[in-house]
Amino acid sequence: MADNPVSIGILEDDADMRGYLSGLLGDEAGMAIAFSCGTLAEARAAVAEGWPDLCLVDIRLPDGSGLDFLQDLKDANEAGAQGHALILTVLGDRASVLLAFEMGANGYLMKDTPPQQILRDVRAVLAGGNPISPQAASHLLSLMRSRPAAADAPQAEADVLTSRELDVLQMFSRGLSYREAAETLGISVHTVSDHVKAIYAKMAVHSKNEAVYEAVRNGWLEM
């Protein structure tokens, strides 16, 4: 891994935070900083020749929104790139965070997240996970539940998901990882992964965040 480090991009307008993240991730074995930018324009210029493996993205920027950068990444992935993104924001900006998840962000980081948690969440995304801190999950699900119900009557959960699949989603709604969910439910990580694949297929979603969002919106899950 040292010969082929994963590339990390940082889009954060606060210079101190940007420097802190650059030092934290740049010093980590197997990781290399591809760019560290304070504006949307600078980040767009930095990815003109190719996207890094993972971008940490702030929402509020001096020349636009991190959501615009997420849209750029989504377009690039549809064209064949394989980039990932972690939101880097504050809890107060809940509406923007919800929108970012709907646009395909892979996880949620708060700016006061401890350094070891940041490293764990970054590695989780690179391994295919979708980390959400417990505090962020609570706020996010609260906001989603407050949204107006869809015009069409939702299907009963029994018509879509099994009780065990709902158990797995409940674990994810609490911010647990695959391993933590497996330990809590007394099943293997492989079994959890199989349940997730079934959930994705049945609900026509592509991430844990989408699945939790749709389950809460349909009234299948409670915090």
Rank of each mutant, 00 (worst) to 15 (best):
A211C: 06
A48S: 09
D13Q: 13
N4K: 14
T162M: 01
L91Q: 13
A85H: 03
T184E: 13
L24Q: 05
E214S: 12
M171I: 08
V47E: 02
D13S: 14
V97W: 01
R164D: 11
W220N: 05
D58K: 00
M223A: 14
D167P: 00
E165I: 09
D72C: 13
E210N: 09
V205S: 10
S96L: 13
P148Y: 06
G128M: 08
G175F: 01
P154L: 00
R145Q: 14
A46S: 13
G19K: 10
S163F: 07
D68Q: 04
G129P: 01
I132E: 02
D159Y: 00
D63C: 06
A34P: 01
A201Q: 13
T89F: 09
S173I: 10
P148Q: 09
F101V: 09
L88K: 09
G9D: 10
L169P: 01
V57D: 02
I132M: 11
A81H: 08
P154E: 06
A201Y: 07
R217M: 09
E12M: 04
A151H: 05
A215V: 10
L109R: 10
L70A: 10
L25E: 03
D63R: 04
D63T: 05
F35W: 05
A81D: 15
L56K: 11
V196K: 08
L40S: 01
D16A: 14
V192K: 13
D3K: 12
I199D: 04
V212E: 10
A215G: 01
A204S: 15
L140C: 09
D53G: 09
T39D: 03
A198C: 07
T113Q: 08
A136R: 11
G175Y: 07
S207F: 04
L56H: 03
R120H: 13
L25H: 09
E102R: 14
A181F: 01
D152N: 08
P154T: 03
M31S: 10
R217K: 14
P134A: 13
Q135R: 12
R18T: 04
K202L: 01
N218G: 01
G107P: 11
P5I: 08
A46D: 04
H190A: 13
I132P: 00
A48F: 06
A149F: 01
P131N: 09
A204H: 15
N4V: 12
G129H: 03
A156C: 04
I187W: 05
E49P: 03
L109S: 09
A29F: 08
G66I: 06
L73C: 06
R44I: 00
Y108R: 07
M17H: 07
M17E: 07
K74C: 01
G66N: 06
L73I: 08
W220F: 05
P131M: 06
T89C: 05
V205I: 01
P131T: 11
Y178R: 10
F172N: 01
A95H: 05
G9E: 05
E165Y: 02
